[in-house]
Design a protein around this nucleic acid. Structure first.
Lengths: 211, 211
DNA sequence: TAGATTGTTAATCGATTAACAATC
DNA sequence: TAGATTGTTAATCGATTAACAATC
């Protein structure tokens, strides 16, 4: 209802990605309607939270029926920005960087990996899928020419800030940081920490204190 | 101070992983003391939040000096469970699964990948580092014998719940879910969603509404 | 000692949940 | 119509921040 009022809390944005994942599934099953109660039960939330969350997006439900699935999918995709293609580069062509550059889920959601960079002479020039690993020093010019919008940082923590600075200076608008390091960025750039490794630590903490 | 009182809020646990990353760095630089103000400035928090967070762990600071770095590192590692080795398997030997199985950061933090499984005949038997990809049907027995504690789910979303059920029945205590699917688990098992793909959506949402 | 920094309590802020009138 | 479900307001809950006495 609030539509483009965009002060959507981060906690809500995170849940929107979950709603989209589920709505995508039910759409594929040709199911036409989904209620806040169903979404809540599926994702372990309360229906109140779901309705509150969906009030942030520009889409209305229907009394007695719930939310029309294809419409909800469209608006969630639009709100989350995955209704367009985002030109993306990966810096760091180690195991993780190479894997992400070829990760199908990224392409499917509109994240098109158009380049991959590394600093190691032994890796530069090698192939990753259709792409050839380029030297990091070529990145700034190339990113500008190719109108790259997103940079994925898949280098060791010690190099993460430096790579971030290069990407930002080259004009990317957002960074996905896969390292454990905290990256400082100017206000006009967005960063999200992927937390793959940190997640495992959260998991072991939880295991230690579970039944 | 509260020590093993373990109702540590998830938001706090997430920040503890960040404190550990930074404390690790300063320890390597032979710096002996770190204050709540420094930690806050580095990570973009308030010193109040840092002190409140550290009050959950069994470690005290010193007036006028702050926190002794190697001691803080030890207690954070212990609290987060990365002071021991966790026997871990990966299910799904696609790009992402293979990359994670070989990811150095995991090994460095004590997550020892002892097995990798897949369902595809064309992948079974192939090598991933020192490991050989095994058929998923062999997982339950193998996991029991090998005393595996953690399972990493790197299969497509549609198969994630089924793989989770197999891992849980085999006796793992925690799951790291890399798929976009929501996984339902019994109370004695912990799950953390890694959100690599979802993070990119959070990022594009942020980019759309940034300056 | 004087001053910096902790640990902790109280105040504020924000997010979740409950409740219910509106509605299809 | 009757009943299920939304949208929204108000109440609750929890997390962050401010403030300050204790302390080294």
């Amino acid at each position: 209802m609030k539509g483009m009022n965009h002060a959507v809390p981060q906690a809500v944005v995170q849940r929107l990605t979950k709603y989209l994942a589920h709505v995508q599934t039910v759409c594929e099953q040709q199911i036409e309607w989904v209620s806040s109660g169903e979404l809540a039960a599926t994702l372990g939330l309360t229906s109140s939270t779901v309705r509150q969350d969906l009030s942030y997006i520009d889409f209305s439900g229907t009394s007695k029926r719930g939310y029309e699935t294809t419409g909800l999918r469209r608006v969630l995709r639009n709100t989350l920005g995955c209704d367009k293609t985002w030109r993306t580069v990966v810096v760091g062509a180690g195991n993780l960087g190479r894997a992400l550059a070829q990760h199908e889920d990224f392409a499917r959601r509109g994240f098109q990996i158009v380049g991959i960079f590394d600093n190691s002479e032994s890796i530069i020039g090698s192939k990753v899928g259709n792409l050839t690993v380029q030297a990091v020093r070529l990145a700034p010019k190339w990113i500008g020419v190719q109108k790259v919008e997103i940079g994925i940082i898949a280098v060791p923590s010690a190099a993460a800030q430096e790579v971030g600075d290069i990407l930002i200076a080259s004009g990317v608008r957002g960074l996905l940081n896969l390292s454990l390091a905290h990256i400082v960025v100017p206000r006009h750039v967005s960063v999200i920490d992927s937390r793959v490794v940190a997640s495992l630590m959260e998991l072991t903490h939880a295991i230690k204190f579970a039944g």
